[in-house]
Computed example of a mutant assay.
Amino acid sequence: MTTNWTLTIDCVDPAVVARFWCTALGYTESDPPEGWDTWEDWLTAMNVPENEWNDGASISDPNGVLPAISFLKVPEPRTTKNRLHLDLQVAGGRAQPQPLREQRIRATAATLITAGATLVREVPAENSTTLDHLWMQDPEGNDFCVV
């Protein structure tokens, strides 16, 4: 038997980081619980103070296939390199011509930089000078790669 799970990203501003990852993954804000028209209605009904409404966020695959991702407000900043990160697989794999792979990687990176990402480093293929992937960070410094 499998276990239901979601990936949770600790952050300072869940709304900002959730919006970034919606752009990066093509996800949408998760729907409020069944029976509620908006998250605000649900939070109000649950007596959650307004100053806590941005303590968490959740995004979902609009097709309902891939796992949801949650964002949880934490008081401490990120201090070390992530041990877990997402690879955005946009290039089509190594069977694709290198110029096409690089074009796809760089186009995605440009979109994500506009959305608040930072380029950390270009990583060449092993024993080569051709681009393999880009190491990037989201608006709060969480690592990910565009491959």
Rank of each mutant, 00 (worst) to 15 (best):
D31M: 06
R121E: 15
A107S: 12
N54S: 04
A91L: 00
V17Y: 08
E76Q: 12
G56C: 03
R104G: 00
C22Y: 10
L112G: 01
N142D: 02
V65E: 14
N82T: 08
Q137G: 08
P99C: 02
P77A: 05
N54T: 02
W53A: 00
T114E: 14
E52R: 08
E102W: 06
T108D: 05
Q98G: 08
H85G: 01
L25V: 01
W5S: 15
D132Q: 15
W42H: 11
D87K: 07
W39Y: 04
T111M: 13
W42G: 05
L25Y: 08
S58R: 08
G116S: 01
A91C: 04
L25N: 07
P32D: 10
D41E: 10
S58Q: 06
H85Y: 03
A57D: 01
L43D: 05
V65P: 05
A68D: 15
Q137W: 07
K81I: 09
T23F: 03
K73Y: 03
G64Y: 03
R78Q: 07
D55E: 14
P33W: 11
S70A: 14
M136P: 06
S128K: 09
Y27S: 08
D61I: 04
L88V: 00
D37T: 04
A115C: 04
T130P: 12
K73F: 03
D10P: 03
C22M: 14
Q103W: 10
E52A: 06
T8V: 13
L86N: 01
P49E: 12
W36N: 11
K73N: 07
N51E: 14
A107K: 13
L86Q: 02
D61M: 09
W5V: 10
M136I: 08
V65M: 11
E122Q: 11
I105K: 10
D143A: 08
W53R: 01
T130I: 10
T114S: 12
A115W: 03
E29M: 11
P124A: 11
S30T: 03
T108G: 04
W53T: 00
P75N: 12
I113P: 00
P77R: 06
T6V: 06
D61Q: 11
T111N: 13
I105W: 10
R83N: 11
E126C: 07
T23L: 04
R104Q: 02
L72A: 09
D132M: 14
D87R: 08
G93V: 01
G26A: 06
A15N: 06
S58V: 01
T38R: 15
S30N: 09
E76P: 02
N51S: 13
S70H: 12
S58M: 09
A45T: 00
L66H: 12
L84R: 12
G56A: 10
G26Q: 05
T130Y: 13
